[in-house]
Simulated assay, not measured.
Amino acid sequence: MSVLLEFAIFPTDKGDSVSKQVSKVIKLIRESGISYQLTAMGTLIETDGLPEALALVNSCYDVLAEDSERVYTTMTIDIQKNKHNRLKTKVEAIENKIGKVNR
């Protein structure tokens, strides 16, 4: 099973720049060993099950809640049975098709 979860999480009470707080979240994700991809608007993770993905989001919340009164989170989840490594293969499939179009 492949669970792709895209989420953004940040405190709303720390001013315009929250990179200091978000860097704590990314450090936690990196140290978890879960596959991830950081983007300018959020982070994608891939796990083998939904409980693991949601537990990671909960841990990210816990990191921010330590010194924040309000934390904002959005999530999008795509679950597909009998698939793995979609964080990489979905992007490769598009890039391969683009390459064929440009030839």
Score class of each variant (00 low, 15 high):
Leu50Lys: 02
Leu64Gly: 11
Asp48Cys: 01
Asn82Gln: 10
Asn82Lys: 10
Ser59Met: 09
Thr73Leu: 09
Glu92Asp: 09
Tyr61Cys: 03
Asp78Arg: 01
Lys83Arg: 09
Val63His: 09
Met75Gly: 02
Ala65Lys: 02
Val91Ile: 14
Lys90Asn: 14
Ala55Lys: 03
Met41Trp: 08
Ile45Glu: 07
Ala55Asp: 08
Ser68His: 10
Leu38Ile: 05
Met75Asn: 04
Gly42Val: 01
Pro51Ser: 12
Val91Arg: 04
Lys88Asp: 13
Lys81Cys: 13
Ala53Cys: 06
Asp78Thr: 11
Val57Tyr: 01
His84Met: 14
Asp48Gly: 11
Arg86Gln: 11
Leu50Gly: 06
Val57Gly: 03
Thr76His: 08
Arg70Glu: 11
Ala65Phe: 07
Thr47Ala: 10
Arg70Ile: 05
Glu52Met: 05
Tyr61Thr: 02
Asp67Cys: 12
Leu50Glu: 06
Gln80Val: 15
Thr43Gly: 04
Lys90Asp: 15
Thr76Pro: 01
Gln37Val: 00
Ser68Lys: 02
Val57Glu: 00
Asp62Met: 09
Val57Phe: 05
Leu64Arg: 00
Ser59Arg: 13
Thr76Gln: 03
Lys81His: 13
Thr73Arg: 03
Asp48Ser: 10
Thr89Trp: 01
Ile77Thr: 12
Glu69Gln: 10
Met41Ile: 08
Ala93Thr: 07
Ala93Cys: 01
